[in-house]
């Protein structure tokens, strides 16, 4: 599997699309979650209305709120970027027919996909790390610009937040990877995945979320689990609720973590099963 991991690392590193995706994610974080928020709360536009005054809301962009700010982008743009990256890693192999080239090399099918899985896990780890570092840098700069003292979150919270963020990104990466293996088409994997994440769960949640039966089903979906996990990292002060998923979480953080863990294992198992058994080129 080490051989496959080295091969996949080289492919991923040389692929421009991966760098563009990470660039989009970082640009989104810096521009929308820091720069734009800072200017809006610093200079509220006429008619700006909020239960929490802008002078308090502006604390979103300061170091004390690095963890909830990073987590707030994971369920949206973070999910989309990592889903696309996961889908590209597998679906492109079918699109270019390179799957048959690599499967006639030395490693077995399990080792080939195993290398991909480890590479994607490391990629999501690095993306998580970069997100936190960039968020910390941006918040420190803005605090400095605003003349505020930099209050960093507790180390234990950073570790927990980092782990939660890695898990969330890992689940969406694994979802993309699985859709790529199942559909064997980049367009179908990305289109299907994004439609589910942004349309199906969102529409069901917003239109039917209060219906008894639907509410119970929602508790088992990955988006709800992400909301549950991110909900355990509130903004400071807690009066600020913006960006953490909208509305109270349907499930606890612990249940969210378990649900995401189960999804992660299920996606990996499905991918391995399909990739190992299905004919190539039939």
């Amino acid at each position: 599997m080490i051989a496959s991991l080295r091969a996949d690392t080289l492919k991923a590193r040389k692929r421009t699309a991966n760098w563009i995706l990470v660039g989009i994610l970082l640009a989104w974080l810096i521009l929308l979650s820091y720069v734009l928020d800072y200017f809006i709360f610093k200079h509220p536009p006429p008619g700006f209305r909020s239960e929490v005054p802008p002078s308090v809301l502006i604390r979103i962009v300061f170091p004390e709120n690095v963890i909830p700010t990073v987590l707030s982008v994971l369920g949206t743009i973070g999910a989309a970027v990592m889903l696309i990256m996961g889908a590209l890693s597998t679906a492109s192999e079918y699109g270019w027919s390179t799957v048959q080239t690599i499967l006639v090399q030395k490693p077995g099918r399990g080792a080939v996909l195993g290398g991909k899985i480890v590479n994607l896990a490391l990629t999501s780890l690095i993306v998580t790390l970069v997100l936190f570092l960039v968020a910390a840098a941006a918040s420190l700069i803005l605090a400095g610009v605003d003349g505020r003292a930099a209050r960093l979150p507790a180390a234990s919270d950073v570790v927990r937040g980092f782990g939660a963020a890695w898990l969330v990104l890992g689940v969406y990466t694994a979802l993309g990877m699985t859709l790529g293996v199942v559909f064997r088409s980049t367009a179908a994997a990305i289109g299907g995945g994004l439609t589910y994440v942004f349309v199906v769960e969102t529409v069901i949640g917003s239109l039917l979320g209060n219906t008894g039966g639907i509410k119970e089903i929602l508790k088992f979906l990955p988006g709800t689990a992400v909301h549950g996990v991110t909900g355990t990292f509130p903004f400071s002060p807690t009066a600020i609720t913006r960006g953490s998923g909208g509305g109270p979480a349907l499930i606890s953080g612990t249940r969210g973590l378990i649900t995401l863990g189960v999804y992660l294992l299920a996606f990996i198992a499905i991918s391995l099963l399909v990739f190992s058994r299905r004919d190539v080129g039939a």
Binding site: A3, L10, T101, Q105
Partner: peptide
């Protein structure tokens, strides 16, 4: 087997580097 299939964004040498890593 059938058409030679490689990564279009990689050079010929880098494609062989990928395969060399697999093998």
């Amino acid at each position: 087997v059938e058409t030679p299939a490689f990564y279009p964004y990689l050079s010929g040498r880098d494609n062989l580097r990928v395969m060399a890593r697999y093998t």
